[in-house]
């Protein structure tokens, strides 16, 4: 967290509309259509989930903070709107993004530690591509210090050396007392924020909108398992789309009064403030649909498709 978000490079250069993003990505895909057809990759959100789990796995081996992992994910997302993913070795991208993010978030890790841990995480037998044709491969990533150093430079350049990323975590903490949030609500909202890095939301919305959406989801998701429907219904109600409202009643009945009060307070607070409510609704829906998509997630599929793609390109 540094500098003023409203004057930041993040706001000036790294916030897009959905259309702009789609256009940028189409342009990348069109650069080499046959490659795109030959190398199918999973849905972007599934792929992001894969990146996310890999980064968390790598991050666990070093004393680093969640925020560095978050920054790394934003770097990866920024990078892949400028460089076609099929031309890269995603494992190197991940390791480098995390290495740079650690420096940016003031918890620097030595480059050798990052390289060592990354090799340990990704070269073990269980992470080898599983298809027989790849059985002879020794390493998924031929990673060494100079390669990471070299790639760091490339990553910085692609991001126009605009490196500060503003995150929603701070806003969440600041709103804790205003909205009278309980610790479990905070931690739920915190995980929702962690999850939103698997979507395009960091490139679409300012951090406070995401923090508010996360709080909204935490408040409505919390009470029961049926919370999801309630959330969808409330979101629908907020955005005046009535078709989902039939789910409301069942979920509402189960919600304790305390929480519904809090939701009401929250909605009232939102109504008085100047937060873009439409953006909050969009965000919430985006995150909910992320959770639906993630049910199809299979790590092996991601791993295999990435490996196949790298194999094809001779990047392994």
């Amino acid at each position: 967290m540094a500098a003023d978000f409203w004057a930041s490079t993040q706001r000036r250069y790294w916030q897009f509309s959905k259309e702009q993003l789609a256009e940028l990505r189409d342009k990348l895909d069109n650069e080499d259509k046959t490659l795109v057809q030959q190398c199918p990759l999973p849905d972007r959100r599934l792929l992001s989930h894969f990146f996310n789990t890999q980064l968390v796995k790598l991050g666990k081996r070093m004393p680093i903070r969640q925020q560095a992992i978050a920054t790394a994910q934003v770097y990866i997302r920024r990078f892949y709107i400028k460089v076609p993913i099929r031309q890269t070795n995603p494992y190197i991208v991940m390791a480098t993004a995390l290495y740079l993010a650690c420096k940016m978030e003031e918890s620097p890790q030595h480059i050798r530690v990052v390289v060592g841990e990354a090799s340990a995480v990704w070269s073990g037998s269980e992470h080898l591509p599983t298809k027989p044709s790849f059985a002879d491969q020794q390493d998924v990533i031929p990673l060494d210090v100079s390669k990471l150093g070299e790639f760091e430079f490339y990553l910085i350049s692609e991001m126009n050396s605009q490196l500060i990323v503003h995150h929603p975590y701070r806003t969440l903490q600041e709103l804790q007392s205003t909205l009278n949030l309980a610790p479990d609500e905070i931690s739920l909202a915190w995980s929702v924020i962690n999850d939103h890095y698997m979507t395009d939301l960091p490139l679409l919305n300012p951090p406070h909108v995401i923090a508010v959406s996360a709080i909204f989801l935490a408040l409505t998701l919390k009470p029961t398992q049926g919370g999801l429907q309630a959330t969808i219904a409330t979101a629908a109600a907020l955005s005046n789309t009535p078709q989902l409202s039939k789910n409301t009643s069942s979920a509402d009945n189960r919600a304790p009064d305390m929480t519904s009060n809090k939701v009401q307070n929250f909605v009232a607070w939102l109504a008085e403030g100047e937060v873009d409510i439409k953006a909050v609704v969009d965000c919430s829906q985006e995150i909910i649909s992320l959770y639906e998509v993630l049910e199809q997630y299979k790590e092996t599929t991601c791993k295999e498709q990435i490996a196949a793609c790298m194999k094809k390109r001779g990047l392994v």
Binding site: E31, D32, T88, Y154, M310, L315
Partner: peptide, 9 residues
Amino acid sequence: GAATAKAKG
């Protein structure tokens, strides 16, 4: 493959 990029890009 490290730093990627085919000629065109």
